[in-house]
Write a protein that binds this DNA or RNA. Structure first.
Lengths: 137, 137
DNA sequence: GTACATCCTGTAGCCACTACAGGAGCAACC
DNA sequence: GGTTGCTCCTGTAGTGGCTACAGGATGTAC
C-alpha cells in the first residue's frame, strides 16, 4: 500500500489531480491510515495509469468514465469501447488536419515577414483578412 | 455602424464572446446608441476578424494583446510579431507530432479489438500499460 | 527534539468562454 | 396604438480540467 505522493510519482499524475479525480468520482475513495492519509494499492495504480493514458489520448472524463464502467462489466461487448475510441480517432484526425493548415499559414506568414515594419508585416495583414474558407472546429 | 448581432454574424464571433472580449479589454468599449446599444464600425470588424483568426491559429489572448499593441505602433519592428508566431509554430508542430502518435495508437487499438468481450479488448489493456516513453506536453 | 517532508481539508483561481435570469428596446404588422 | 417577436442590455454563475494556495496535522531522519 502506497501513499498519494508515491502514487503520483508512479503514474505521473499530480497529487492535486488525484484528489480532484476522487472528488469527481473518476477514482473510488481509497482506504486510509489511522491518521487519515490515503492508501493506494496495485489496482489504483492500474486504474490511474489507464486514466492518465486516456487523458493523454485526448479522451474527456465522460468518455473515461464510460470505459471504466465497461471495464467493471467484462461480459459487456467491446463494441462500445471501440466506438468511443473511433469517435476519438475522428476528433484526433480533425485536429491534425486543422493544425497542419495552421502550420502552413504560420510558416508562410513568418517567411513573408522580412523583419520590416509592422505596417508592412504580412502576419497581421493575413490575420486581418476575411476567411477564405471556414475551418470547422 | 452596426449592432453587436451584425458584428457577430460578420466575424463569426459569438455575441457573448464579443462582450467577453470587451470585458477583458481585448477590444475597446464601442460607442452606444441613445438607448445604450453597442455600435461598431469597420475598424471593429477588422480588429475582431484579426482576433478571431489569431484564436483559430491557437494564439492565446495574451499573445493577441501583444500583437494588437504592436499594431498600434506601426513603426515598431515586425520581429516581435514574427517571434510570437514562431513560438506558436513550434507549439503547433509539437501538438501535431503528439496527435500523430495518438492516432497511431488509437488506430492500432481499434484494429486489435475484434469486437469480443471487454476482458480481452486491447483498448483498455493498452491504456492500462505503463508508458514506454513519456510524451512531452 | 527539531527540522523538514508529506499529507490533510477547503476554498479560490485559471482560461476562454457559455448560459442563464430578468428586463428594456425596437421593428413590423394589423 | 397594440401586440408579437426579435434583439439587446447587465450581471452572475457555470463549464472542464485542473492548479494553487492557506493553515494545519502527521511522519521520518538525524
Amino acid at each position: 500500500m502506497i501513499a498519494i505522493g508515491a502514487l503520483s510519482r508512479r503514474t505521473g499524475v499530480n497529487i492535486e489531480t488525484i484528489r480532484y479525480y476522487e472528488r469527481i468520482r473518476l477514482i473510488p475513495p481509497p482506504g486510509r491510515t489511522d491518521s487519515g492519509r490515503r492508501l493506494y494499492g496495485a489496482e489504483d495504480v492500474r486504474r490511474l495509469t489507464f486514466i492518465r493514458h486516456a487523458r493523454d489520448l485526448g479522451f474527456d472524463t465522460a468518455a473515461i468514465k464510460a470505459m471504466l464502467a465497461l471495464q467493471e462489466v467484462p461480459e459487456a461487448s467491446c463494441e462500445e469501447v471501440s466506438r468511443i475510441a473511433a469517435d476519438q480517432l475522428a476528433a484526433v484526425e480533425s485536429r491534425i488536419r486543422r493544425l497542419a493548415g495552421l502550420r502552413t499559414e504560420l510558416t508562410r506568414m513568418i517567411n513573408e515577414c522580412d523583419n520590416g515594419e509592422v505596417a508592412t508585416c504580412r502576419i497581421i495583414e493575413v490575420l486581418a483578412e476575411a476567411p477564405g474558407q471556414t475551418v470547422d472546429h
